[in-house]
Design a protein around this nucleic acid. Structure first.
Lengths: 232, 232
DNA sequence: ACCTGAACACCGTTCAAGT
DNA sequence: ACCTGAACACCGTTCAAGT
């Protein structure tokens, strides 16, 4: 319609590693991680897919990069936390930090799926864990116990868990006959579901990882560590 | 070289869903999950990729299927376990079952990466969790506490954890200057690594998920649950 | 009923070429 | 220095066609 050398309405911002990564986070936030392709990413940036390779080595580095972006976002939040952590206070400080990290991840639902494979390569995540060890040291942990604690917390240290199996699943749309045969094969689960009012369907981070269950597991571990704290 | 209608040395076993899934497990075991493509799977079976679609709907169903195969393998193993589980014995019974499940997963290193996304759809895994709830009931758990317990255990209930960050990583090939700047930025981790003899590099399930750390975290949770067992 | 060839719509990525 | 067009080697999958 318009003339062929129409003046650009937007003067075309040049690409950069930072722009590419920020756009990648946006794409993943909006369309899920499987929607993040080099071609789609380029499209969002108003460029060709091949142009991205001038700023990032390949797609793997993009994934490393967006994990690091999120980890920096977490660090920005938790570094602003300034509560006492000496002695018995370690637990409250740790708890608050982990729940704050979780709040960030809730805004990036793709992150828990991508983090496990790239966390080790993210400097920001290493920084985060360094701070956690610092809190435990404040609480009187030996390095050895702090090390065990990191392993025991696993992904919970960053605010999420990998739930394997949603106990509230698969009973929704069943006819009575199927339900009865299920009661035969799965007596304990059926009993559990009948009693546990699983009517709180705000699954947050996917995987039925809802807030109260997350906190239950977190407190279980933190309490256990707290008991070991002074004996080791 | 040979005549064109040479008699087949092997009379060509017909495909079937079971053969496809078993071959898929083999491919993933040997080459990793990323090596499992429909074309490679067909090749292993001496067929064309398109022939697979007669026996499985699509690749997603193949992934669902191989998870179920592994879950059945786990059930076969744990169902042979027959130890007392009444009262205080629940913990030993649970522990043994989970560690046995872990032993199976150690033979299929790709499984922990695939399980989280498909566990809910595997009947065999649902069956596994039903048995776990049964053990906890034997131990006197309320359904409510058993439900919390499943969430608290998460993937640990099946014998693996998602480690985010290997505390023994990234210090191997560093020049002294880099090490010193690292000590500035990561004082606690550097201190921890200096003290914790992390010279046990038999990472088993990837993710630095080594056996003693797994058992430490598992016992921490089981002990915590055991304490709640009679008060709730 | 079971299998296949050709083809399609997608990937990530290379490389020589443009400005 | 930064970007791109054409092309390559791979995917999963459809569909009409073979036995």
């Amino acid at each position: 319609m318009a003339a062929q050398n129409e003046p650009r309405t937007e003067p075309r911002i040049p690409l950069s590693r930072e722009r590419v990564l920020r756009a990648a986070v946006d794409v993943a936030d909006e369309g899920g991680i499987e929607s993040l392709t080099m071609r789609r990413l380029a499209e969002v940036l108003g460029a060709e897919a091949m142009s991205l390779y001038y700023h990032v080595a390949n797609k793997d580095k993009v994934l490393d990069g967006i994990v690091d972006v999120i980890a920096e976002e977490i660090n920005d939040v938790v570094d602003r936390i300034d509560v006492p952590s000496k002695g018995a206070d370690w637990k409250k400080a740790m708890r608050q930090r982990i729940l704050s990290a979780r709040a960030v991840l809730l805004r990036h639902p793709w992150a828990p799926g991508v983090l496990p494979s790239r966390a080790t390569t993210s400097p920001a995540i290493v920084q985060y864990f360094d701070a956690l060890v610092g809190l435990m040291r404040d609480g009187g942990f030996s390095y050895d116990l702090a090390h065990h604690a990191l392993h025991a917390l696993g992904s919970r240290a960053l605010g999420f868990t990998q739930e394997l199996f949603d106990p509230g699943d698969g009973t929704g749309d069943q006819d009575p006959a199927a339900l009865e045969s299920m009661a035969d094969r799965l007596p304990h689960l059926v009993g559990m579901l009948a009693e546990v009012a699983h009517d709180d369907p705000d699954s947050t981070l996917g995987w039925c990882d809802d807030q109260t269950e997350f906190e239950f597991g977190l407190d279980l571990i933190l309490d256990g560590l707290d008991r070991m704290r002074e004996t080791v």
